[in-house]
Each structure stands twice: as structure tokens, then as C-alpha cells.
Write a protein that binds this DNA or RNA. Structure first.
Length: 313
DNA sequence: AATCGGGTCAACCGCAGAACA
DNA sequence: CTGTTCTGCGGTTGACCCGAT
């Protein structure tokens, strides 16, 4: 087809974005909205290609972005969605409010993927460094000092490169809680598949789905091969992705997953405004009373799925 | 204190499909 | 219908960070 490259590489900035560039792009999007990315650099006066602008906006500058501090619930959901969808990061990200496909992809590659690999080949296990995201009820010590997501290491000022990385937190402190992980067992990964009920009710609760669950054929103790066995019906996928989680039955008095809940002090005081509508639609208790405080994030709407799928896998 | 090596993550690349002319 | 442009996606890269030695 002879497409032109998205941008001429001559004279364009590459690499990390500066604070000034971020400001310009933010301002541009605030005024003109998203879209027409190709024309953005020219109109905004940025020496970047449109693609780069789009990426920067989507992965970092969007106001509803949550960064870092992926909770255990989110991790579980990622694992399950990945089992369903494979490496379709954008679809997975679409089910995690405030998360980007890039972040989830990175998280998978650096955390979950390893775990899965370890499971399939335990002898190759090389103990990783402690990670705030991969450890059960651990909170990065740095996080306790402040609030909100890990602060970006930004050097504010024109022309100065921002390092926007979420702070890596290797110093952790234990939080109180009923969980007992002293056996060192990774509870999150202690999940084994079992056959789905033909109705699919274990996955979707009472959701009236026309998905054909009869195609699902999980093999015992072989969750890593889930996708090989699961030729996903597009209708199923469509239905699955169209689930209005807020309409799903909740699992009051049926919560059994408290041993993997992380105390996320970073987010609990900063609910994402963009997801409030979801949170407000789900008022049923998802966790025992004593754990209520630790589920203040906007991830709550995902709990019904998470819970229902606990039965499934 | 210096160096090394592994982990992390923002950004880039190339491709494919959608949208448009 | 065809060709072009735009947008979005997943894989990969490389700079940076930090613990270990």
C-alpha cells in the first residue's frame, strides 16, 4: 500500500518527554480533545510524532490514569483475564479502570509472567527481589510516608526530562491482617482450574448470557494451557466484555478471599473520580466487615467477577 | 566507594484494521 | 471499489534504578 511513515524522523524529539512537552500536550488535549493525533504535533507545536503524542497521553497524561500500586485484586483479575484473552492487553486494561495496556503488559512481563513461569518450572525458580506489587500484604515503606500513587520522579522545568517511573519500592512493611502467609506459599497462584458449569453461571453469576460455555473444556490442573483448550467463541468474548459488572449479583456473606487482600494505603484516600459511578452502583459488601476499609479503591466493581471466577478456576 | 547485574517501565517500532476520500 | 490515512495494538528496546558484591 505504500504507506508513509507516521512521522519524519528528522528533527523530531525522541525519548523521554520533558515537563514542558507534557504541559503543551495536556493543554492541547484540554482545548481540542483527543484524536487527530497526526496533526497534534503541528498544531500544538511539539517536535514529536503524532503517535508519540497519543502514546504519551494515553499512558501517562490522561487525568484518570492510576499508576503503580496494582492491588492483589487487580493482579488476580489480570491473571484471569489473561487466561481468557491471552496477550490482548488493551482488552484486559479495559476491564481495569485507570490502567493502561502498557502498564498491564509491563506488569505481566515483570511480575505475573514470572510467577506463571515459576509454576510451570519450579526448578528454574530464582528468588526475585521483593516487590511491592508481587507480595501479598506488603506495603512499600515509601508509600506509607505519602499518599497516592508512587510519585513520579519528575524534574519540573522546561526542557528537562521527566523520569516518570513509578517509584520502585523494595522496602516493605507488613501490615496487620488475618492472613497468614508465613508458609511462604503464594496463595494467589494456588489456583487450579476446574470444569465450568455448562450454564456458565459460575463465571457470570446470574447474568443472562448467551455465551456458549459448552465449548469450554478445562483440563484439571492445567490452567496454563487454558487458552489452548479454550477456543473462545467470539460471542462469548463479546458477551464477556459487555458484562455490566455493576449488575452482577454480589457475593454477600460469601467472601472467602480475604487472605490475599492488600492494604493499599496509596489509593484508598484518592478514589478515582472517573470511576465513582461504578463504585456507587456497587454497594453490597464484598468483604467481611473488618476488611471494608481496605477495599476503598475503584477496583471494587470488578469484585463480582473476581469472586465468581474464584469458583470457576 | 565503585562496579556489576538484574529489574523496571516509558517509549519506540511495525503491523493490521478501521475510517475516510 | 480502491487507495490512502489514521488509529490502536502487541512486541521490543534501552535508559534508569537499586541491591548485591
Amino acid at each position: 500500500m505504500g504507506r508513509n511513515p507516521c512521522c519524519s524522523k528528522e528533527g523530531l524529539n525522541r525519548g523521554a518527554w520533558t515537563a514542558m512537552e507534557d504541559k503543551i500536550l495536556k493543554e492541547y488535549v484540554r482545548i481540542h480533545g483527543e484524536g487527530k493525533w497526526r496533526s497534534v504535533p503541528k498544531r500544538a507545536g511539539l517536535k514529536r510524532c503524532g503517535k508519540s503524542c497519543r502514546l504519551r497521553w494515553l499512558n501517562y497524561l490522561r487525568p484518570d490514569i492510576k499508576r503503580g500500586n496494582i492491588s492483589n485484586d487487580e493482579e488476580e483479575l489480570i491473571i484471569r483475564l489473561h487466561r481468557l484473552l491471552g496477550n490482548r492487553w488493551s482488552l484486559i486494561a479495559g476491564r481495569l479502570p485507570g490502567r493502561t495496556d502498557n502498564e498491564i503488559k509491563n506488569y505481566w512481563n515483570t511480575n505475573i509472567g514470572k510467577k506463571v513461569q515459576v509454576r510451570s518450572n519450579p526448578t528454574a525458580f530464582k528468588r526475585p527481589r521483593p516487590s511491592n506489587q508481587a507480595q501479598g500484604n506488603l506495603i512499600p515503606a515509601k508509600e506509607l510516608a505519602g499518599s497516592g500513587a508512587a510519585p513520579p520522579k519528575a524534574i519540573i522545568g522546561s526542557g528537562q526530562v521527566i523520569r516518570t517511573k513509578a517509584t520502585r519500592c523494595t522496602k516493605v512493611v507488613l501490615t496487620s491482617g488475618p492472613q497468614d502467609q508465613s508458609d511462604g506459599h503464594d496463595h494467589q497462584l494456588d489456583i487450579k482450574p476446574r470444569a465450568l458449569e455448562p450454564s456458565g453461571s459460575t463465571l457470570l453469576g446470574d447474568h443472562d448470557s448467551s455465551a456458549d460455555f459448552s465449548k469450554i473444556n478445562l483440563e484439571e490442573n492445567n490452567s496454563s494451557n487454558f487458552l489452548e483448550d479454550f477456543e473462545m467463541d467470539e460471542n462469548f468474548l463479546s458477551d464477556f466484555l459487555d458484562i455490566d459488572f455493576s449488575q452482577l449479583p454480589c457475593f454477600e456473606n460469601n467472601y472467602e478471599g480475604t487472605d490475599s487482600i492488600i492494604t493499599n494505603t496509596g489509593d484508598k484516600d484518592q478514589p478515582s473520580p472517573t470511576c465513582n459511578h461504578l463504585s456507587t452502583t456497587t454497594t453490597t459488601h464484598l468483604v467481611p466487615e473488618e476488611d471494608q476499609t481496605i477495599h476503598g479503591s475503584d477496583f471494587q466493581p470488578m469484585a463480582p467477577l473476581t469472586e465468581s471466577e474464584l469458583d470457576w478456576i
